[in-house]
Amino acid sequence: MTETTPDDRKGLKAKTRLIHAGRRPSEQFGFVNTPIYRGSTVLFPTLDDLTRRNAKFSYGTQGTPTTEALETAWTELSGAAGTVLVPSGLAAISLALLTAVKAGDHILVTDSAYRPTRIFCDGILARMGVETTYYDPWIGAGIEALIRANTSVIFLEAPGSQSFEMQDVPAIAKVARAKGVCTILDNTWATPIFFPPHERGVDMAIEAGTKYLSGHSDLLLGLVSANAQWLNRLRATFDAFAMCPGPEDVFLALRGLRTLDLRLREAERQGLALATWLAERDEVAVVLHPALPSCPGHALWKRDFLGSSGLFSVILRPCSTAALAAMLDGLKLFGMGFSWGGFESLVIPFDCRVYRTATQWSPPGPALRFSVGLEDIEDLKADLAEGFERLRAVG
């Protein structure tokens, strides 16, 4: 068997590239998977080699064959110039922002962003002298009016982490490029399989590998991919922090990579089926799923995305806190817990009113975010139907 190269794989589908990218069995005595390399010290054969750092790997913080395998695979999948790995999704957000900002800068962040992103901007970046302005996620090319002379970053998330507003990423990226502003996208919901970030004009793309790349709710990992313009600066910032993930987590992510397409497409199918069923329930006022024609962001999703994942939200009709607790506490198949993208289904209540600043969040009733797993869809519906019965019984 002849190993494929990145050039060989350029014409292949993503499903095929996921299987072959980042693997070199010929360098691993024929074993299929890249092994776990644990270590800090790398030995050099001569003084000259040591002095000149003449080695592919010179110290553990700069990478190992394990991390290189995932970095190169993710770079190929996302259409980037390069990728770095960090210990969590939030670490990926922090690293990308720290790569692009300096004291005295101004940045623009979507009002629908993952809340820890806001906490980092309003805390750490504010202490560094970086000012953050939150903007309406629906703004599109109109974001040009918010760009100042010292604006260095536009941070996007499509769709929004809980409220699922869909952003016009290409339009915003075009404006940013013309103004010399770096665009950073949290692409965790879609992954590069359903949204090729750099092809759509984004400079740096963030992925919480904790979610779909892992697929099993048993690791923490973040990835930041960058285009050629930003890669060297990203790598230099990463090297300065030595923000390294554990080798076991990287190994598990590599294993998850091989089945990512299958799991993501099943999550898409399951998510759409449950979202459609929930839209017909009397207890549900609104379903926030970009792939549904009824969702406000559907046209943008249809134009720019290649699919949808299993994460979406619903707004219930008005009910008491006791009724909501009765519904959720008795669920047998939907766990209540943070994160998503694993094999098990999850649900959490949320309320954006406490932190939105550029837009108003005023749903008619409680909001729930669902992460649909790989259980049988009819069993999931039955579990929720019993939950809705308990909700109605309490009122």
Rank of each mutant, 00 (worst) to 15 (best):
P35N: 10
A228K: 12
E165N: 08
S294L: 15
E157K: 03
V284L: 12
L213Y: 11
K381G: 07
A91G: 11
M1R: 10
W230V: 15
A385H: 08
V314D: 07
D218F: 09
L185M: 05
V224L: 09
P290C: 01
S339N: 05
A91R: 08
T83I: 04
T357R: 15
R317N: 11
F238I: 13
A96H: 10
D8Y: 15
L85R: 10
E344Q: 15
V372M: 09
Q229F: 14
L85W: 13
A285C: 13
A113P: 09
G307Q: 02
F155Y: 12
L70C: 03
P349T: 05
A103M: 14
N33A: 14
E131V: 05
V250F: 02
A190D: 03
F194A: 06
P192T: 10
A326P: 15
L324H: 12
W340I: 13
T210H: 13
A92E: 11
W301I: 00
A299P: 09
G129Y: 13
T41M: 00
H20F: 11
S345C: 12
K332W: 11
L328V: 15
P364A: 13
G395N: 13
L292T: 13
D249F: 03
G123E: 07
D239S: 05
A96W: 15
M204W: 01
F155A: 05
E144Y: 02
L262Y: 05
G160M: 01
T2A: 09
A113W: 02
T72A: 04
C319E: 11
P247H: 15
L333P: 03
A253R: 15
L50I: 03
I315V: 15
R235S: 04
A323N: 04
G142S: 14
S225Q: 02
V354S: 10
A190N: 00
G209I: 10
E76G: 08
R390G: 05
R233G: 06
G215C: 04
K56C: 12
G395A: 07
T41R: 00
G365C: 14
D383A: 06
S225T: 08
E248L: 04
L316A: 09
A113H: 04
N54P: 02
A92S: 12
P296L: 04
E76I: 00
M128C: 08
E68A: 14
A171I: 00
E280V: 07
W189F: 12
K302Q: 10
L391N: 09
A80H: 05
E157V: 01
L90S: 08
V224N: 12
T359G: 02
P87L: 04
K332Y: 07
